[in-house]
Amino acid sequence: MSTQILIPFFITAVFLVAAGITLAYMLSPKSFNLQKQEPYECGIPTVGVTWLQFNVGYYTFALLFLIFDVETVFLFPWAVVMKQIGLVGLVEILIFFFILVLGLAYAWKKHALVWQ
């Protein structure tokens, strides 16, 4: 089946949200209140900047993910044909995994897997 079929699904999803928001816009009450526009912070006005440079802890995992995810992508084609190629595929993937695990072990050793 071709990927054309994605088109109606995409359009429907966008339509669903757009229709919902439009309907709500027409039905819902509107009132203006400065207090209401404050971002929620337990009823106290916000202090300081919200959009500031954030902790690096989150980003290291994004980097790690990138490495491993690309490798997972490589695994899929191999997985599909694994049954046919037999021993050669097994040995090759062992080598591939060895490198992969080496990377993981290195990251583990360097405490990159611990959230800082």
């Binding site: 966008v14 309907l23 819902s28 526009q37 919200t50």
Partner: peptide
């Protein structure tokens, strides 16, 4: 549906409204 859609001061309006679209499109 009948609740008011509150617009937050200083929020990034475009992205704020875009987010539900992306979430729904992905799940749909």
């Amino acid at each position: 549906l009948l609740k008011e859609n509150i617009k937050i001061k200083n929020a990034d309006g475009v992205l704020f409204n875009l987010a539900p679209f992306i979430v729904i499109v992905a799940s749909f």
